[in-house]
Amino acid sequence: MGRILLLRSWHGLIVIMGVTIVVFVVTRMIGDPVDIMLPLEATAEQRAAFEHQLGLDRPILVQFFDYVWSLAQFDLGDSLWQNRPALEIILERLPLTLYLCFSAIAVAVLVAVPMGVIAALKPGGIIDKITVLLSLGALSVPQFWLGLLFIMVFAVQLGWLPAGGAASFKHLILPALTLAIPTMTRLVMVVRSQMMDELNAQYVKTAEAKGMPLFRIVGLHAMRNCAVPVMTLTAWEFIRILSGYTVVVETVFAWPGLGLIALQAIERQDLVLLQAIVFVIAVIVVVFNLAVDIIYKVIDPRIKLD
C-alpha cells in the first residue's frame, strides 16, 4: 500500500509538471498583457518600457526557467494585474470556491441518493417516471441560464434572496443550488441504475426469501455495493465543478471565488495569476484523486490500486 501510494504520488507529480509546461506555453500564446493593460493609444516606446518592467521582454526560455525555479521555491510569482503575490490572491479566493463546491456536492448527494433509491424500488412506477423526467429536464438546462432564472424568480420577483455577492449564508443558496442541479441529475441516474442492478442480484433475492426487511437489504447490503460507482461519479463531479463550472456560476452570482478571478485574469491576460490558478487547481485535483483512491480501498478491500 505504501509503495503504491508513493507510485501514485510520483504519477501526480508528473501530471502537475505536464500541466505546468502546457499552461506556460498556452498563456504565452494567448496574447500580450501589455497591450491589454495600457490604453490603446499608448505609444510603442511606452509599451516597450512597460514590457521591460514586467520582464516580458526576456527570451521565452529564460522566462520559463525563471518560472520553474520560482515554483521549486513555492513562489507562484506576482500577479501582473493586481501587483501582489498570486498565491495571496488565490488563498483569499480559494476558501470561498471550496465552500461553494462542497455545499453544491452536499446538496447534490443528499437529494440524489434518496431520489435514486426510491425510483429504483419500483422501476417504471410513477415516482420512477417523474424522477427520470425531472432529471432529464434539469440536465438539458444550461447552467448560465438556470442561474439567471433563479435570480429573476428569487431575487427580483420574490425578493427572498440576494442576486449576487457572498456576504452571508443567504448569498450561498442560489449559486450552490445552480451548481448542484446538473450534478444531482447525473447522480440520480447512476444511483437509480446501480440500485436496480443490485436489487436484481441473487443475494437480494436470498435476503428477501429469508425474510429480511427491505430497508435493511437496501441500507445494509445494496447501498454498500452501490457506493463505489456513486463515489466515483461524485469525485468526478467535484472535479468538474471545481475546475470548470464555478467559473460560470461565480460570474453569474458575482461570487468572489477562484472561478471569477480566473475569468478576470484571462480577460486581463494576467499570465502569472492564470498559471498560478491552474497550477493550484492541478495540485488540488491530484491530491483529491489520491485521497479518493485510498477511500476506495477502505470501502472495498477487493480493489487493487496498482
Partner: peptide, 8 residues
C-alpha cells in the same frame, strides 16, 4: 459592489 455579469 462588484458585479461583472450584466444580467446580475
Amino acid at each position: 459592489r462588484f458585479i461583472s455579469e450584466f444580467g446580475t
